[in-house]
């Protein structure tokens, strides 16, 4: 199944949660926030949301800035 993550098409297994994907990408779920189909999620929601075919996901985190 295909989703769009940070602008790139990506193949993920069915029934993948957002937390699962974040782990799969080697990122720390504690520091990444997700915007799922245009909606900003609270971090607690990540592990309960299953990705559907064609889902648009933005994974965001803090970086250096002034």
């Amino acid at each position: 199944m295909k989703i769009i993550c940070n602008g790139q098409e990506r193949e993920v297994a069915p029934a993948t949660t957002i937390t699962g994907l974040i782990r799969e990408l080697g990122l720390n779920p504690e520091t990444v926030v997700a915007e799922h189909n245009g909606r900003v999620l609270a971090r607690e929601e990540h592990e309960f949301i299953l990705l559907d075919e064609g889902a648009v996901l933005e994974l965001i985190r803090f970086v250096g800035g002034g």
């Binding site: 940070n6 720390n28 965001i60 985190r61 803090f62």
Partner: peptide
Amino acid sequence: VTVALRRVDLDDPGDDIMR
């Protein structure tokens, strides 16, 4: 301290400032 928000670069996740 100020911090910015950016999309994670999936090809090069790099260091995490939070750490």
